[in-house]
Design a protein around this nucleic acid. Structure first.
Lengths: 237, 237
DNA sequence: AGCGCACTACGTACGCCGTACGTATATGCC
DNA sequence: GGCATATACGTACGGCGTACGTAGTGCGCT
């Protein structure tokens, strides 16, 4: 707490190149790309200052010339993958536009499963975040509401997308985690959860778990949740 | 990845006491309470196995008899504070019941600002989580829908609560962070964000930022978001 | 033209972290 | 009573973020 900067420092506020001194041998884009590559391949916990520096054939401490704190490296990563969005011309149907943007976000997060974790909880104001927000707002042009309300809609959609996809990813990782598959998963669920639930203390929960609903279609769940958020915005003003 | 357990281990599945060997000198509840105390006072990053062990006057490695992995310590913490919920008899008006439970969650998270971060992304199945879920479902008894749908409603509400409160907390921390207050905050916002926004590349964003809406009432924003989720559930099936 | 400063580069070192492992000791069950 | 199984805990390993000091480089100003 003592050594905190007296003024908030945002990496986007510092110029990538000042003109003085030797030319930097690397660019922010290179650094971000290296970090994204490592995170995609080995998980976000494998992203360390040492490792990214090594990846770029530079000394560990040299990286600190570009990225003052590790947290800023995360910001670079988020900004980099945010550049993968496609921004088609809005159709005029804001609901559809918002939904398809959300679907893009979902795909993006599945491509980079570390995203939800690093985005918690704020989206920040990186260059690509600004572009993204501007595009969201342009999709909402047909909606006659103050910008404040539009921002709240965007926040609600982002919230639900992030949480749901984070859940999908977590579930997927647990399932794929190791040789124990559906069988053992069931075994464990019976062993503990089943034991608790069958104790009679949680009758509704027991009913919910035994309610046979066929295999869960995650995509359908996602779509429903999204549609509810959008319709809720229309319905509840 | 090599040393992962062949079978998923959940701390709630291992008995707190087996009967064999010396009496454990501490209880899970003690341990959880110590960790919560430290996290509340010094932030969640101050929660280390060493520190919690020291807090309980035990050797670092003794703690591992109770808590096999640090991640499990986090689970204990979440479960412990989940015990703070009050569960009044449902009124029969499920909307109000859900809303007031969400308000409780918000208050709980403000009391323990590390909660949103540790809960990402899954709520888990700790004892108190089961109690919580069962209560949620009991509030939804008047709603005639399959349990699957009710679970989706709970998930949607939880999602929006967690994200919004996480944002409130993050904003608050940034504001309270150090001696730079509103003035400098504005200065920075002008310096960078203003520079970008005023560049003309983000006309709607510029309009949104300059839209004068008076001071933001975070609680009102929260209530609106919540109401939209609930109404969306009613409206969009 | 040349000086000086801001910048890059990077090695070393500090104080943390999670936790594997080995050993000594205490206890409940057969 | 003896043995299997707990607890208790010190030591040690390999990693982390990053403060700091030093050396070299090239732009900008006088």
């Amino acid at each position: 707490m003592a050594g905190r900067p007296a003024v908030p420092e945002v990496i986007w506020a510092r110029p990538e190149r000042t003109g003085r001194g030797p030319r930097p041998a690397h660019s922010r884009a290179d650094i971000a790309a290296a970090a994204v590559r490592v995170a995609d391949a080995e998980g976000v916990d494998a992203v360390s200052m040492r490792k990214i520096a090594a990846e770029l054939d530079m000394g560990t401490m040299s990286l600190y010339n570009y990225v003052p704190r590790k947290e800023d490296l995360y910001e670079l990563m988020i900004d980099a993958v945010s550049g993968e969005y496609a921004y088609p011309e809005p159709t005029g149907d804001w609901r559809e536009d918002v939904l398809s943007l959300a679907r893009q976000t979902r795909a993006l997060m599945h491509r980079h499963p570390w995203m939800p974790r690093l985005m918690s909880p704020v989206y920040g104001f990186s260059p690509n975040a600004l572009t993204y927000l501007e595009y969201c707002l342009s999709c909402l042009d047909p909606l006659e509401r103050p910008y404040g309300a539009k921002m709240e809609l965007i926040a609600a959609v982002t919230s639900v997308v992030t949480t749901y996809v984070a859940n999908e990813i977590a579930t997927g990782e647990r399932t794929r985690s190791l040789p124990w598959s559906a069988e053992q998963e069931q075994a464990v669920r019976i062993a503990y959860l089943g034991g608790q639930v069958a104790s009679g203390r949680y009758p509704r929960l027991a009913a919910a778990f035994s309610e046979d609903s066929g295999p869960i279609d995650l995509e359908a769940v996602f779509e429903r949740a999204l549609r509810r958020v959008v319709e809720g915005f229309v319905a509840a003003g």
